[in-house]
């Protein structure tokens, strides 16, 4: 595991904590797109189905293929799943009245349908698990679109929301560096599905990163988009 990968994962983990902290501290989920959060739960659910495989190996005491990396991945996968479901749960229960649903107008089928079709066509293996994994990679790349649309609609974001978006966008950018590093150092490593999707994902954050850094440089992370 290289430094870029571990940093990326920790940044991703931080993004959940920032969002949960923001929602708990302000008792509000204003400015956060429920649709984007819902897509992330779907992304992790489809991607981490191999948890059952690991669980199966553990309950049958088949530890031969369980490495340190397996344990690390399993731990993080469970955390990511728990955090994203918890966020969706909070947004639909105690914080529902503060949810920006009226402005969260993105049509989810506009990303769900193309991602499903692409996953059926462009995958490494035509098996259910592999197609769902590929679908999750494609969907994650564009899952931020409702959030970006809400940000444009609102025209501004408070500083915790900005930090959250920086963390969730920055993590995939670090994965890009990790992939370059692995491609250069590991003879059999190549994962073009993730590379292309990861590039699209990072590119979608391009404008946001620009405004974020301008704000950070001026000593304030609250964003106000130019009108």
């Amino acid at each position: 595991m290289n430094i870029f990968r571990i940093s990326a994962d920790l940044l991703h983990l931080a993004s959940f904590f920032i969002l949960i902290f923001k929602m708990k501290a302000t008792k509000s989920c204003k400015g956060i797109s429920f649709k984007t959060q819902l897509m992330y739960t779907l992304v992790f659910t489809c991607r981490y189905l191999d948890l059952f495989h690991v669980l199966g190996m553990m309950i049958t005491f088949n530890f031969a293929h369980i490495t340190g990396l397996t344990l690390y991945n399993t731990f993080m996968k469970i955390l990511f799943l728990a955090a994203s479901y918890y966020i969706v749960y909070l947004m639909r229960t105690e914080l529902k009245s503060t949810s920006d649903d009226a402005r969260d107008t993105f049509v989810l089928w506009h990303i769900l349908a193309p991602c499903a079709v692409l996953a059926l066509i462009f995958n490494a293996q035509f098996t259910i698990l592999e197609i769902l994994w590929t679908f999750s990679i494609y969907l994650e790349a564009v899952a931020v679109m409702p959030q970006l649309m809400l940000l444009i609609e609102t025209g501004e974001a408070d500083s915790l929301s900005s930090h959250y978006m920086f963390a969730v966008g920055g993590y995939r950018a670090l994965y890009l560096v990790n992939w370059v590093y692995r491609y250069a150092t590991e003879p059999y490593y190549s994962n073009w599905i993730a590379w292309i999707a990861g590039f699209v994902q990072t590119a979608l954050f391009g404008d946001f990163f620009y405004y974020y850094f301008v704000k950070i440089m001026s000593g304030d992370a609250a964003l106000k988009l130019p009108t």
């Binding site: 990968r5 994962d9 991703h12 191999d50 990396l69 991945n73 993080m76 996968k77 990511f80 490494a124 293996q125 994994w133 994965y175 990790n178 590991e186 059999y188 490593y189 994962n191 993730a194």
Partner: peptide, 10 residues
């Protein structure tokens, strides 16, 4: 194998 390498990330 190759597929293990592809799926060792999060």
């Amino acid at each position: 194998g190759d597929s293990d390498v592809r799926h060792d990330e999060l």
